[in-house]
């Protein structure tokens, strides 16, 4: 025990630098490596750095010389720019060109195309009918009845002309999807489509608007649903006053919505809570 203590004392004194042992060792040991070692090591160090620098420079030069670098850089730049613009547009809440827009534009072009084809068909029909009638007249003129086949064809054409309206296909986008886009934009596009529909000669002849009406109804329903979900979210956030205010506005805008539907979306607790003071 005593030995350990004295050893520790000795160690501490040595570690503090007050040791004769340490002084003796340092004064007696001044050996240094030979100069040829210095030379070899320093040369190697310098060479290693030079080689490394040369490789780096060579790699850099080769990279810039490569034929694919410029096209790749341009492609990367364009990709980055486009994605940046899209991201910025999305963040600002103004989509550059959205899916719905594209679909509506597609619908508009379908309507236009069908209108054009209908017009062509009508003109062809007229010419065919005229030809049939003229032939019929020619046949009927000598007092001989027209062949049954010709007469039947003419009748069929006439009947088809009156009854068959060109079918316009409008892609129906889910109401939810539409509501996620901006309302003003939707209305602008919708107006554009309707004006095109009205201007097209074929539609005036009795085009079915069932799909368009359905689309409007879907949109209306989704807007109601979204408004209710907004009220629910406000309530859940604890913004009760705001939720009640929004609910009042909602009931003014949509007086026909049944309380059952509202309860279904809001839940009984929130719905009842809206009427409490």
């Amino acid at each position: 025990m005593a030995n350990n203590e004295s050893d520790d004392r000795e160690l501490n004194s040595y570690l503090n630098g007050n040791s004769e042992l340490s002084n003796g060792y340092r004064s007696s040991n001044k050996q240094e490596p030979a100069s040829h070692l210095d030379e070899a090591i320093l040369s190697a160090a310098k060479e290693a750095v030079n080689v490394s620098n040369n490789i780096k420079q060579k790699t850099k030069a080769e990279f810039h010389k490569a034929p694919w670098v410029k096209p790749l850089s341009i492609a990367a730049m364009i990709t980055l720019s486009v994605s940046l613009v899209v991201t910025m547009q999305q963040e600002s809440g103004q989509p550059l060109i959205n899916e719905f827009d594209v679909e509506i534009l597609d619908s508009a072009s379908i309507i236009k195309e069908s209108a054009i084809s209908e017009t062509k068909l009508n003109s062809e029909d007229v010419s065919v009918t005229n030809e049939i009638e003229s032939r019929q007249n020619k046949v009927e003129r000598p007092g001989v009845p027209a062949p049954a086949s010709l007469s039947a064809t003419a009748d069929t054409y006439r009947a088809e002309e009156k009854t068959e309206a060109p079918k316009v296909r409008i892609k129906v986008t889910p109401a939810k999807k539409m509501l996620s886009k901006g309302k003003p934009q939707f209305e602008a596009i919708e107006d554009r489509v309707f004006s095109e529909e009205q201007n097209s000669p074929s539609i005036s002849g009795g085009v079915a608007f069932d799909d368009t009406i359905k689309l409007k109804q879907d949109r209306e329903l989704s807007m109601q649903e979204d408004a209710l979900l907004k009220i629910k979210a406000l309530w859940e956030k604890g913004e009760f006053v705001k939720a009640k205010k929004t609910y009042e506005e909602f009931t003014k805008d949509y007086p026909d919505v049944s309380s059952e539907s509202m309860k279904e979306i809001l839940g009984y607790t929130i719905y009842n809570g809206l009427f409490e003071d």
Binding site: K30, Q31, E32, P33, D38, I41, L42, A45, K46, V49, N50
Partner: peptide, 14 residues
């Protein structure tokens, strides 16, 4: 920087 190595080497070689 090869000079940095030289300084380092001279400091620690012995």
């Amino acid at each position: 920087d090869a000079v940095a190595f030289e300084v380092l080497y001279l400091r620690h070689k012995a």
